[in-house]
Design a protein around this nucleic acid. Structure first.
Lengths: 202, 202
DNA sequence: GATTTAAGAGACTCAATAGTCTCCTAACGT
DNA sequence: ACGTTAGGAGACTATTGAGTCTCTTAAATC
């Protein structure tokens, strides 16, 4: 080594700071997403994550038993919660709120080449189902039922099938053209697809 | 070796038949799908395919430059063609026909843990888009336009957005509950989602 | 300050697998 | 029948990456 007349044996670049606990954990999560974005799920390696987080593999394996567990925790940490969706009890605005939430989830996923993950890993998929899919489905169905009772929509319009249409269109858009997953898109889904469907002739 | 007093040096099981050309190619394609079903895309190996096809790796690499190329060809060989969809020029029955086609594609995919593939491999994804997604989207949009001109549906109902709803619902179902991707499901999508949407109030 | 905990770095082992190559011979064409 | 082509089997190489382990030392605790 050429530099550092002081007593630093290795690489001079790293400042002599050493992260611990929660701070390190967050850096690791961030590194996971960085890697996912750069090399995709197929290319995700523990060495890569460790390097991106500027740490070693030991701290990774001290926290998580394997790659999949790390991934699930990283995702869980970053995803928004369906509980935070602000519902007003009014059909149109509630539909918009729920679909917006799904968009934000999709955006995080698209950001990080993450659809792959959902398919690849059963553990990740289960977590997504529990935290995202099921709660939103339930909420939408309740919204539709309330609207139907109020007479806002045609009788018989609130079904599991119609409740799934919004999420279906959003996730399909996410798969085929993630760039156009905008708020205007959400609006037109509600106004041109969902409301006509719910009010149109049976 | 204990058996075969005749001059068979190795394994006695294989009959002395040796496939060639097209016959062998089909056996290989079948082996690919067998493997996909058994071990999934992540677990797909050339050795595995060769073994399942009861052949060696040389014939594989003589035909395809790498794993991805083999996969794309196997898929292309098995997928139905959008050109074969029988259209009658009538809204409801045409929608049903197109969605049925998508279902058959989805079923083949679900059969073989193949959604993964679409995500994983850009080449496969491009092929699916060209052969499946684009043609069906185009056909649906034309069907909707014709119906609108005929006055079968409300003015302004035939858009890229509404044309995407059917495929969206089908592929979403395929992702979340592939077992329920039945013909009854197709019917209810058309009757409870698409027709109300196309005829309901703007 | 002394003690304890765990971070940073990376060497190491072990298994899997892509792709190449070789050998032998069955099937096909003439 | 003979010669040519390509199939079946599998050895071999080289790479990659998961998970383990060790060593040193920074940070937290008391």
């Amino acid at each position: 080594m050429l530099e550092s007349p002081t007593g630093e044996p290795r690489h001079a670049a790293a400042p002599p700071t050493r992260r611990r606990g929660r701070e390190l954990q967050q850096a690791i999560y961030q590194a996971v997403f960085e890697q996912l974005r750069e090399v995709g799920y197929a290319g995700l390696t523990m060495d890569g994550v460790a390097a991106a987080a500027r740490t070693g593999k030991a701290p990774l394996y001290r926290r998580w038993p394997d790659k999949e567990a790390l991934l699930v925790d990283a995702l869980r940490d970053r995803l928004p919660s369906a509980d935070d969706i602000p519902l007003a009890g009014e059909l149109r605005s509630d539909l918009i709120a729920i679909l917006r939430f799904l968009c934000s989830v999709c955006t995080i996923c698209a950001d990080t080449a993450l659809q792959m993950v959902k398919q690849q890993s059963e553990a990740v998929h289960a977590m997504m189902r529990e935290r995202i899919s099921e709660p939103t489905r339930r909420m939408i169905l309740e919204t539709l039922r309330a609207a139907e009772e109020r007479g806002d929509t045609r009788p018989g319009s609130a079904t599991a099938l119609t409740a799934g249409v919004g999420p279906a269109v959003i996730s399909y858009q996410n798969l085929t053209a993630p760039a156009e997953l905008t708020d205007e898109f959400v609006m037109s889904v509600v106004d041109e697809v969902l409301l006509p469907m719910l009010r149109g002739p049976a």
